[in-house]
Design a binder for these strands. Structure first.
Lengths: 221, 221
DNA sequence: CACTGTGAATTGGTTCACAGCC
DNA sequence: GGCTGTGAACCAATTCACAGTG
């Protein structure tokens, strides 16, 4: 366990922790013993004082005059984030995008294992993608119980709200949404959006308004 | 032109405008004449008062008692965001991910046209992806001048900082970064990150801490 | 001396309350 | 009555200033 969690931790702090984790790992690769808040801040594009404030939510993790011990901080961050185990993931939507994600090799080494694939299109059901058989969406609730699925990645292009409702009803509480549509869900469900179009559409604002020079902060978005 | 831009507009407001744009378009499809701040807010998962505050930065766009006229608001938002034209995009990195993005059919209808592809791996140079020849990265600066490229999508798995430096040196000021690495750039360069691993790694925090029930706001992240 | 940890000050963003208009 | 626009009040997050420590 990590030292202690002092009160409520702002969500925005949580969102930065994975970036700090990458910073420590980079330092570890360079065989460093300690890493400073300045270095971690560079990785996350935030000032050093922000890093210290953020980490201080979880106790006194550093050593004055030295920095944060790499091995220990890496482990602490993993524990805080729940990355000290693997997570079983379901992909919903076996179209072009879904197939690309299933074949994407970078999830597994980070502990995210795609265990099941679902689609409501009969023509796709029972095909096999990357060794995983595609099942009908109606089989999701049973699969959640039987295979311990915790996270759903949504890649369907439409009827997204229906799909999300089904996912939520099946007991999954964490969703990564690749669909270019905002889905509504109860507030105890965590949703993250991956939406390149949205990102491009705010980039063009800055291209069209070269005068406003405060992009630094925008980059955090 | 849209009415007027009252002072500095917070970046976070800009990031919400594309969501409002989707909300208006949805209303337009339903043949509605006006759309309310409540409706737009549902699309963006923000309260109605937020929508009104945000839009008020650009003048009085609505009509009391009715809402916002759809046709007009759609056009105004497009203009504000610089979406009333097409943008030429360069993809840097012709690997698996790059090829998937180039073949992704959803950019073009939104006005983002992939005009050129670059890779520094000689074995990939001169291959053709989706009709577009892969050129050496060294050809980027000339291509920026000649083809009016405005946005770079980075899909290389490593040496990301070098690639970003090259892109910035070539005069491009807007970058969509798919690499799982934070790149440094001058503050007049706008960067957006597409990073599913990062998203998953903060989702697991909430899976590991079922007690904290304030995910609603987290979903905005 | 270099670095962390943290209360205090500041900035920035959201929400409220209500005036104004259709 | 329904809905926008907006100053004022509130809340959250960042930054500052500096005390504390190896």
């Amino acid at each position: 366990m990590y030292p202690k969690e002092t009160g409520r931790v702002p969500n925005i702090v949580i969102a930065r922790l994975p970036l700090y984790l990458r910073g420590v790992r980079q330092a570890l690769e360079a065989a460093a013993e300690c890493v400073t808040s300045t270095h971690l801040g560079e990785q996350a594009s935030v000032p050093d004082t922000q890093v210290r404030k953020d980490l201080s939510h979880f106790g006194k993790l550093g050593q004055q005059g030295r920095g944060y011990p790499c091995v220990q901080l890496e482990s602490t961050l993993r524990t805080i984030l729940g990355l000290d185990r693997t997570w079983n993931v379901a992909v919903v939507g076996a179209g072009r995008l879904g197939r690309a994600i299933i074949s994407y090799p970078d999830f597994t080494p980070e502990g995210f294992v795609i265990k099941a694939v679902f689609d409501s299109d009969r023509r796709r059901v029972n095909t096999v993608i990357h060794g995983i058989p595609v099942r009908p969406l109606s089989a999701l609730p049973a699969a959640v119980r039987d295979s311990g699925l915790s996270i759903a990645i949504v890649t369907v292009p439409e009827r997204v709200q229906d799909v999300v409702d089904t996912i939520v009803a099946s007991g999954i509480t964490a969703i990564l949404n690749y669909a270019p549509v905002t889905a509504q869900a109860p507030s105890d469900i965590a949703i993250r959006r991956i939406d390149p179009i949205l990102a491009l559409q705010s980039l063009t604002y800055f291209l069209s308004h070269p005068s406003c020079d405060d992009r630094r902060r925008a980059n955090a978005v």
